[in-house]
Each structure stands twice: as C-alpha cells, then as structure tokens.
Amino acid sequence: MGKLVVTTFVTLDGVYQAPGGPREDTRDGFDQGGWSVPYGDEDFGRFVDEVFSRVGAFLLGRRTYDIFASYWPKVTDPGNPVAGKLNALPKYVASAGLTDPGWAGTTVIGGDLAREVPALKERTDGELQVHGSGALVRSLFALDLVDTLHLLTFPVVLGAGRRLFPEGSPPTALRHTGGRITSAGVSVQSYDVDGRPRYGEYALPESS
C-alpha cells in the first residue's frame, strides 16, 4: 500500500497560486505568477529529483493537470527524471467535468474522494503524489487523507493570491521529519500528518 504525499510551493505569506509562470493561473486578477522561477537552482532540482524517484502514481487537481498536460508530454528526453515519471506512470485527476483526457495513462476520478483516494493508495506501489493542486490538497487535508507534506517555502512575499491554508481550514497536526535550506534560500520542510491537534495535552498550567 502506498502513502499519499503532497509536495507544494508557497510564498512566505502562504500563496500557492501560479508558481511556475505569469499565465499559469490568473484567477481573481492575479498577475504575479512565476514567483518560484528565480529560485530553481541545482540544489532545488536535486530535491525535486529525489521526490520523483519515489513516485508510484500521481493524483492531480484539474487545473494542475491541465498545466502539466500542456507541457510534459512534449518533453521526450528519456533522461529527464520528472518527464519520464509523469509520462509513464498512472495519473489520476480529480474532476467532475473532464471526460476525455488526452494524456496517456490518465484516469478521471469524479466521485467521492473519501472512498476513491484510499482505494488508489491501496493499489499504488510507492508514493501516490500530489503536486500543486491547491484546492484538491485542502480537500484531502479535510478528509484526513494526507500522510506526508513536503512544504517548500520561497523567500518572497506577494500580498495577494490564493493561499494554501486560508481561514477556515481544518486544524491539522504535523510532525516535522526533516528539512533544509537550498542555496537560493528556499525552505524545504517535510512533515508527517498526525491528524487533529490535541490541544489539551499542551495547555499551560494555571497561574497561582
């Protein structure tokens, strides 16, 4: 049985929207896309390669799937560790509207995530990886389906954009399992998900 691993990029103020390019996601008039690009050095690339070396299948939201499907099938270099895995391994896209995906190896799941995602984990060897897909990630956290989170925080503040964990997100307890800072200043932190916080265990003693 595989585990569900989320890898996501955020700014210091928690924005996940459009890290890769100016036209990637312009919802709500967002015009600061591409904020992660200046920080993609060799150190950052090594971490990404490590993540993709463990993947068994991909689970993506519709928007991220469309972005990936417009680019990665065109990358045919067999030595590319990202393109090789994305093009060869099973891809599951959570969508109520996609009916005829053109990217080989894609299966649409449009039903109950609480039922479908555990079934995907059960039949995946290695990690069932989620990249980007902010709205899907929030749903997976709300359903307690995430096992591990790789959170990459970039040293930039945007002041606008969609946030990964906006107000009203369900409480989640995370246990830090490792981390580092890339040479360009990206904080790469890994967490296992421990479920809901147990507030009572951390209460301060009453003052006398």
Score class of each variant (00 low, 15 high):
208 S>C: 02
169 S>Q: 10
178 G>P: 08
9 F>D: 06
19 P>I: 02
88 A>N: 09
25 D>E: 12
200 G>M: 00
129 Q>M: 15
74 K>M: 08
26 T>P: 01
33 G>A: 07
179 G>V: 02
179 G>T: 08
177 T>I: 08
76 T>V: 12
199 Y>D: 06
173 A>R: 15
56 G>T: 09
121 K>Y: 02
30 F>R: 03
117 V>N: 05
175 R>V: 12
62 R>C: 04
205 P>L: 06
86 L>S: 02
17 Q>W: 02
203 A>V: 13
140 L>V: 03
192 D>P: 00
39 Y>K: 10
195 G>S: 02
106 T>S: 07
4 L>N: 10
51 V>Q: 12
202 Y>V: 14
207 S>G: 09
34 G>P: 11
98 L>N: 02
86 L>T: 01
85 K>D: 03
96 A>P: 00
128 L>I: 06
77 D>F: 13
3 K>A: 11
146 V>K: 06
159 G>Q: 07
160 A>R: 15
136 L>D: 05
173 A>C: 08
95 S>V: 01
129 Q>F: 05
80 N>L: 05
166 P>R: 14
108 V>L: 03
105 G>F: 12
202 Y>L: 14
85 K>C: 03
138 R>I: 02
91 K>L: 03
97 G>L: 05
206 E>W: 10
49 D>L: 00
179 G>E: 04
151 L>K: 13
65 Y>V: 01
193 V>H: 04
94 A>R: 04
156 V>G: 06
147 D>P: 02
69 A>I: 01
7 T>A: 14
42 E>Y: 08
122 E>Y: 09
133 S>G: 14
146 V>Q: 09
38 P>M: 10
99 T>P: 00
194 D>A: 15
75 V>E: 09
172 T>Y: 03
180 R>W: 01
60 L>H: 13
163 R>T: 15
22 P>C: 07
12 L>H: 08
15 V>I: 12
